[in-house]
Simulated scan of single mutants.
Amino acid sequence: MTLTFKTTDTTAVFLNPFLNFERSEVTCQLRWDPLTGRSGRLAHFVGFKPAAADFSGLIETSGKNCPFCPDNVLALTPKFLPDQIPEGRLQQGESVLFPNLLPYDVHSALAVLCRQHYRSLSDFQPRLFVDAFTNCRSYLDRVIADPAEIYGLVTWNYMPAAGSSQVHPHFQVYATKAPGNFLDRLLSASQSYRSETGRCYWSDYVQEEIRRDERFIHQARHSVWLTDFVSLSVLSDVIAIFPGKQTFFDLDASILEETAQTLSAVLDWLGRQGVYSLNMAWLPARKGEEHHWLQLRISPRLYLAPHVWCTDTPSLVSQYQESFMIRSPEEVAGELKAFLRSHPGA
């Protein structure tokens, strides 16, 4: 099994009404993920930038009765059973963690990130992430009896374009035996690679990405940051890979501090590009599954045409499960790398 970044270019030809019906050619590129074979399409929307969306009215109205704001969070959110978490809720800095009223599994919680009802992506200080991640890890530590059997998942749906029903920033955290199709496919393919080659795919992958320097963004002491060759997002996913780490429990305080610094800088850059919404997820293995390395995946989300609330999940994505990208991961990586070099926190 070899690590191959496979692409195929195709060209569509038509008579262009914006050029007096002259012949036009537009190139699209098909890509295949080197580990799983998952395919995606890069459609070149020349000069694309996210169209502005006005959320000012939504932010104002949603803040009036927000259950996650400081005046309400202890009165309007549920508590854990005393035999589960005697305190009822977990608090760390500004983060407050409590049971999810709409649970995803037996152990399912929400972790509010901050007291402020709304923050732009450029306004998330590293300390907020350190405290929220620490809070989530404390919860998982209490509810996961055997980390070799259970996955501890932490996700973030930020703003409505990412599927959030609340403006106030909050994480979802849950313990489960079912890691979800995407993560399950990564784990299975990683195991197959180890069985066939005797090597860890993620070690080979990181080395190859650094050597190519096409999607490589930043190397910190405990993590490597890059864009994904076949992104889930139309604007290109940013991924942090943690060499030799499998679970959320493998991250000590110094690693969380470092991760929060880089994450805050990445979000700052995204905000400056006009991004206003994202999904984020930790992709762990279970304890002992050394064929996989822990990852943090950031997927920008947006309305392709905000004036008609056109989402970025057409049938190609939602039913065919085929990614499409309108900015190349290589272009995004180059711009983000330059930004992080001059960012004081990265």
Rank of each mutant, 00 (worst) to 15 (best):
T2H: 08
F5S: 09
F5M: 07
D9H: 00
S24L: 05
S24F: 02
G37L: 05
S39E: 15
L42C: 01
F48R: 07
K49V: 12
E60N: 10
T61Q: 14
G63H: 05
G63K: 06
K64T: 05
C66K: 05
F68K: 05
N72D: 03
N72P: 01
T77K: 01
P78H: 14
D83A: 13
I85F: 08
R89L: 08
L90V: 04
E94K: 00
E94D: 03
S95M: 11
L97W: 07
L97E: 07
P99W: 07
N100Q: 07
Y104R: 13
D105M: 06
D105H: 02
S108E: 07
L113H: 02
C114V: 06
R115D: 14
Q116W: 00
R119I: 00
F124M: 12
F124E: 09
Q125I: 04
V130T: 08
D131C: 11
T134E: 13
T134L: 11
Y139L: 04
Y151V: 10
L153A: 09
A162E: 13
S164Y: 12
S165A: 14
S165T: 14
Q166R: 11
Q172C: 07
Q172M: 11
Q172K: 08
Y174I: 04
Y174N: 06
K177E: 12
L183M: 09
L183E: 06
R185M: 15
A189R: 03
S192F: 00
S195E: 15
G198S: 10
D204W: 07
E209A: 06
D213T: 11
V224A: 10
V234G: 02
S236P: 00
V238R: 08
A240Y: 01
I241R: 04
K245A: 11
T247S: 13
D252R: 12
S254K: 12
S254E: 15
E258F: 12
A260V: 01
Q261W: 08
L263S: 04
S264Q: 08
S264L: 12
A265D: 10
L267D: 01
G274R: 01
S277T: 00
W282S: 00
L283W: 09
K287D: 09
E290A: 06
L296H: 03
P300L: 05
P306Q: 12
W309T: 11
T313V: 06
T313Y: 02
S315N: 09
V317W: 03
V317Y: 04
Y320R: 10
Q321H: 12
S323K: 02
R327H: 04
P329Q: 08
P329L: 06
A333K: 11
A346F: 05
